[in-house]
Design a protein around this nucleic acid. Structure first.
Lengths: 151, 151
DNA sequence: TCGATTTCATACTCGAGTGGTAGGAATTTT
DNA sequence: AAAATTCCTACCACTCGAGTATGAAATCGA
């Protein structure tokens, strides 16, 4: 239940690329704009490239650009690109774990957790973040003051 | 977005205690019933005790029992007991992270993720798992075949 | 073709976290 | 007193997270 620096950096980087008026965008510029160590960012951009989310070119006037429209890249895609599956239980996928005896229904709980995770992460796109127009139901979720309270 | 062995073990252990007809329950029995290394389980039970979820007694006829009714212990409580906060971003709580520029709305996304995580984890109790009667909306979430598919 | 710029690949470090194991001390019952 | 059980401290092997360093490969302008 932890969002790593890599995921955080990756999403912010894609938003920055989407919001940039010039193209391609250099890693150095992205690192500066979002306060990310630039060599570390290069590794993240490598993951994004291998996952097919960005393209790149070397040399002067080189840099990175989105491989598809920003409204077709969900936050869930970014997480899968740099970290793997959205949710896992002891290293396995939720639907693969098996429980004996009284704990059997626990698998359904993990499945439900993943469903609710996906509901947010699959629906929020890079374009939505860049334009500050999150989907309606996400805005509703954050509207409740309880959402900001630290139980 | 990973559920550790410790959390998995802790929930299953509490369910097993709740479902046991004798009380108190010995660690050795719990380890056997759920297939958990028994010395490792002792450490988990120590966390649960320090968090006030179980009580214990030593000696022959010693063991562990729930510190409160099973329907007052949510899965979220168990996670907090053995792992800390439900959701964190780069080590900080979601409401504490700050973003500059285009990525500013990203904080709301993480908040929404936590809201949806809580929706499941705060509502499912140890009693519900032990009796295989999950809350209605959780059952609905898992009813969709898509929920079991591995995107 | 030269040189500057930038991405790309590889390897490394350092600390923290995960999933255990081992040995023995403290407590409780018989 | 003896047996059973929890409890405490320490340790270990491995992986992961976050970041750094070095240099090779590609691309452009001149």
């Amino acid at each position: 239940m932890h969002i790593s620096a890599k995921v955080d950096y990756a999403v912010r980087t894609l938003v920055e690329i989407a919001a940039a008026e010039t193209s391609p965008v250099k890693a150095e510029h992205l690192a500066g704009a979002q306060g990310i160590p630039h060599k570390f960012l290069e590794a993240v951009l490598g993951d994004l490239r291998r996952a097919g989310l960005v393209h790149s070119r070397r040399g002067p006037d080189g840099g990175y650009w989105l491989a598809k429209p920003a409204d077709e890249i969900a936050v869930a895609d970014v997480i899968r690109a740099v970290e793997g599956p959205l949710a896992s239980v002891r290293g396995e996928r939720p639907e693969e774990v098996e429980y004996d005896g009284a704990a059997a229904p626990l698998r359904d709980v993990w499945i439900a957790v993943r469903v609710n995770l996906r509901a947010v992460l699959e629906s929020v796109t890079i374009a939505a973040i860049a334009s500050a127009e999150l989907p309606g139901f996400v805005a509703e979720l954050t509207a409740d003051p309880q959402a900001w309270h630290r139980r």
